[in-house]
Each structure stands twice: as structure tokens, then as C-alpha cells.
Amino acid sequence: MVTELFPKLVTLLSFATLGAAFLLIVRRDLAGQVRLFAVQSLALAILAGVVAAFTRSVELASVALALALLKVVVIPRVLNRAVAKIGLQRAALPYLGTPATLVVCGGLVVIAFYVMAPVAASNPLPTAEAIPIAFAGVLIGFFVMVNRRRALTQILGFLMLENSIFLLALLATYGVPFIVEMGVFLDVLVAVLIMEVFIYRIKENFDSIEVDRLGRLKG
């Protein structure tokens, strides 16, 4: 039963992260996007917990705990603070409209499945069949960064990308070593804090956080 249940559960939770990514694309207001990111991270943390339970790995369990703490609680809080300070409630400002974005992301999922299906097939782990989903998340994260005009939503794209890479590692090899994972988390936290400060600076200087306007800085 457990051996049958485990891959199903992994696939389902991976799909949940992908679903959260899709909803994040559709969502217009920043606060909702941040919440969706938290939801995605939560699904990821649960997934890590499930894998940890299945492999009886204490290291992975602590990674799951750290992930939950950092990405479900700390980073959303930091981002919410930034949202509150900037005062932009509905400000995704994508280049493409919602239906077009959905079409593009659907296409990215298809490409991810197409590219990753052989990889998944050659990997012996029971979690392998969800690898294409993780890869789709990576592509979508990239696309969100490309498609959004505002700096804050680009950070969200970056965080989603990072989540998906974590997922990919988890599915393909049951996670990278503990110390590396912690280092990455620290990096992400620092990156988010730095970017937050940058956003304030940009906001103060330009009275807007549209990335387009940074083009004026060049000589």
C-alpha cells in the first residue's frame, strides 16, 4: 500500500506546486501572489516531509522544517512588509494578458514534459515520474521573471524558480546534502532582503518600481 501510495502522493503534491504557480500567474494583486507563494512553499515542505518519512532521513526532515519556517513564514512576511510599504496592491503589470500567458505557460508545461520524459523514465527512484512537473515549474518561474514589469513580482518569479529547483533535486536524488541546502536557503534569504532594500531605493528614486524605467540609467 505504502509503496503504491508514495509516488501518487509525490506526484499530487508536485502538481499542487505547479497549480500554485499557475494561480500566481492569474492572480493580479501582490498580497494574493505572496500568499500563493507561501502555499506553494507549504506544499513543497509537506512533500519534503513525505519523502523524508519514506526514506527515514532525519536530514531531509530538518530541511523540510527549515523550508517551512523560511519560505512559509519568514519570506512571505518580508515580502508583505515590502508590499505594505510600497503600497501597490494590484500591480503585476505583465507584458502579456492573462489568456496569452496561460497559453504560453501551457506550452512550457508541454515542452517540459516532452524534454524531461526520457530523463524521468531513466531514473529508477519512485519519485521520478514527477520530474517533468518540477522542470515545468522552473520554466514557468523563468517566464514569470521575464513577463513581469514590476521588481517585486520579479522576486516572486525568482523564488518560484528556486522552489522548483529544490523540487527537482528532491525528486531526482532525494535532495542534495543538508549543508548545501542550508547554504542555499541562507543565500535566498539574503537575496530577498537585498532585493527588498533595492526596491525601496528604486521606489524612492523613481517613484515607481517598473523595471522598464531602469533602462534610463544607462549612459
Binding site: V26, T98, P99, L102, G106
Partner: peptide, 23 residues
């Protein structure tokens, strides 16, 4: 509304993809 309905279409297509790839 088209955005909502295209969203539901995307979901349905994902369902098909998941049945095709993730057996």
C-alpha cells in the same frame, strides 16, 4: 470571463497531459 474559461481550459489540458505522461 475568457480569462476564467481559458484558465479552466488550461486545467483540463493539464489533466490530459498528466494522464498521458504520468500514468
Amino acid at each position: 470571463l475568457p480569462a476564467l474559461l481559458s484558465g479552466s481550459f488550461a486545467l483540463a489540458l493539464l489533466a490530459v497531459i498528466s494522464f498521458l505522461f504520468v500514468k
